[in-house]
């Protein structure tokens, strides 16, 4: 379970997160929506320790990050093993093949053997529909395919949660749909049981896959509740459609 409580973060004088809190349970899909600059991506990056925050607490299972404390190296690494992340710009490693990209987490982060990592990587590449692209370099793939590799890479470290930071924003509608289908598929997988947090402007997709919606404005969560209620006509997030 992911619980972020009263997260406050400053950038210079600006209070970019102003006491934001979210909670996502195992197997649940949460969507963060809201206008640009509302703090959605920042909150996501605070959750897996890519950005520091100044007040509040992030708890993932038994691991905790506190705004008032500098986290230990061990805590930070454990947290990142537990929480995978998929970026808007994919951030695949261009010097590695697709297979090596997916193997990189198990090998370099978890210390798995190459054989173990390869088995895991092939499994996840198959799951995202790219089994035949093992030996390709990222530069040879379409944007949608690259993002699917990035999803496989995030899943290969066997995380308890995955954070999606605007995973389809850099893609055209066809490729975006391709990626959302994969996310949809993962969300429906009852065996997988990962908590998923997705930041997206693709409201149609969010409505389809999200169990719970958080509406962020000016660094605050101004609404949290079921997607159906949030996007219902006259609902708090209906203006975003």
């Amino acid at each position: 379970m992911i619980r972020a409580t009263n997260i406050v973060k400053y950038r210079g004088e600006a209070r970019v997160l102003d006491g934001a809190s979210i909670e996502v349970r195992k197997g649940q899909v949460a969507a963060m929506v809201g206008p640009s600059g509302g703090g959605k991506s920042t909150l996501l990056r605070c959750i897996n320790g890519l950005e520091e925050f100044h007040e509040g607490e992030v708890a993932v299972g038994t691991l905790k990050l506190k705004g008032s404390e500098i986290p230990s190296r061990h805590t930070l690494l454990q947290l990142r093993h537990t929480v995978g992340m998929v970026f808007q710009q994919f951030n695949l490693f261009p010097h590695m093949t697709v297979l090596k990209n997916v193997m990189s987490g198990p090998v370099y982060a978890l210390g798995k053997t190459t054989d173990e990592a390869e088995t895991t990587a092939k499994k996840w590449l198959g799951r995202v529909g790219l089994a035949e692209k093992h030996d390709a370099k990222p530069g040879q793939l379409s944007g949608g395919q690259q993002q699917r590799v990035a999803i496989a890479r995030a899943l290969a470290v066997n995380p308890a949660a995955i954070l999606f930071d605007e995973p389809t924003s850099a893609l055209d509608p066809k490729m975006a749909a391709e990626v959302m289908r994969v996310i949809d598929d993962l969300a429906d997988d009852e065996q997988l049981q990962v908590a998923m947090v997705i930041v997206s402007h693709d409201i149609a997709a969010v409505k389809r896959i999200a169990d719970v919606v958080y509406l962020l404005e000016k660094g605050k969560v101004v609404y949290s509740g079921p997607a159906a209620e949030a996007f219902a006509p006259g609902g708090p997030a209906s203006a975003l459609e």
């Binding site: 890519l50 995978g84 695949l92 370099y108 995030a154």
Partner: peptide
């Protein structure tokens, strides 16, 4: 960031 997010030191 991608490498760190995977849990690499």
């Amino acid at each position: 960031e991608a490498a760190l997010a995977l849990g690499m030191s």
